[in-house]
Simulated assay, not measured.
Amino acid sequence: MAKGGKKKGPPYLDDPGCKYVVIIDPWGMDSTKNRTSEDVDRLGSWVSFMLREQSENSEVLLEVVYMRGTQNEVILQLSENVDLGPLLGEHRWREFLKSKPTNSSCTASYLLEYNYTVNGKPDNHNWADHYPELKPFFPAFKADITYPRAHYVNATRFGHLKSLVLPLPKERERTPTPPPTDVSIDSFSFWFCDVDLLTY
């Protein structure tokens, strides 16, 4: 218990001074047991490419990459001024890569906001911090394009991460397709009758 009888969390209501994002199936990273600093640097290059437009007006940075044990997911610590809106969702690799990777069965990565209120700082929960080296963009990227906005993804599909991530904002939810209009036979009959009257 903290001084004064109040626990620090959860809920964690302090301002961490940064923003956190969880990546599921992160592009550029080997299987969990074989990941090295090169994987972290490759991921860092992709994230820098992703943030390129935002960095034109103010410096937006990837600060830390967190990994834990054999988990597929990684957590990014980004500078506080980043706009997470266009980043959250499904990132389809074919939209930002020149060609499909031949060494992976995945076709997309998924970015969701980290639930800081429930979890607090990642390094308090055995997430190890790694610091990517800033390197030029990989030749595999479509460097001449504006980075594509992420597609909608329903966070509930990642049930094992329900306490780690937040759902996409309400404004990003898909609008349900309205059901087809039910036109009765009587309506059609009446319409055809009108046409017959006009014809004669």
Rank of each mutant, 00 (worst) to 15 (best):
M1D: 13
K3F: 09
G4N: 07
K7H: 13
P11W: 12
D14Q: 07
P16A: 04
V22Y: 01
I24H: 01
W27M: 03
M29A: 05
M29K: 05
S31L: 14
N34E: 12
E38T: 11
V40P: 00
D41F: 07
L43E: 02
W46T: 02
S48Q: 13
F49H: 05
F49T: 04
Q54A: 04
S58G: 13
S58W: 12
E59R: 05
L61S: 06
E63R: 03
V65S: 00
M67R: 11
R68C: 10
T70W: 07
Q71T: 13
E73V: 08
L78E: 00
S79K: 02
L88V: 02
H91F: 06
R92E: 15
W93R: 04
E95K: 08
K98W: 12
S105Y: 13
C106S: 12
C106H: 11
Y114D: 01
T117M: 06
N124R: 10
H125M: 08
E133M: 11
P136M: 08
F138P: 11
K142R: 13
T146W: 14
Y147E: 01
P148D: 03
A150V: 03
H151M: 13
V153L: 03
V153F: 02
T156F: 15
T156D: 08
H160Q: 11
S163N: 07
L168I: 03
E173L: 12
R174T: 11
T175H: 05
P176G: 04
T177L: 14
P179A: 00
P179R: 01
D186E: 12
F188S: 08
F190N: 09
F190M: 15
W191Y: 10
D194E: 13
V195E: 14
D196R: 14
Y200F: 12
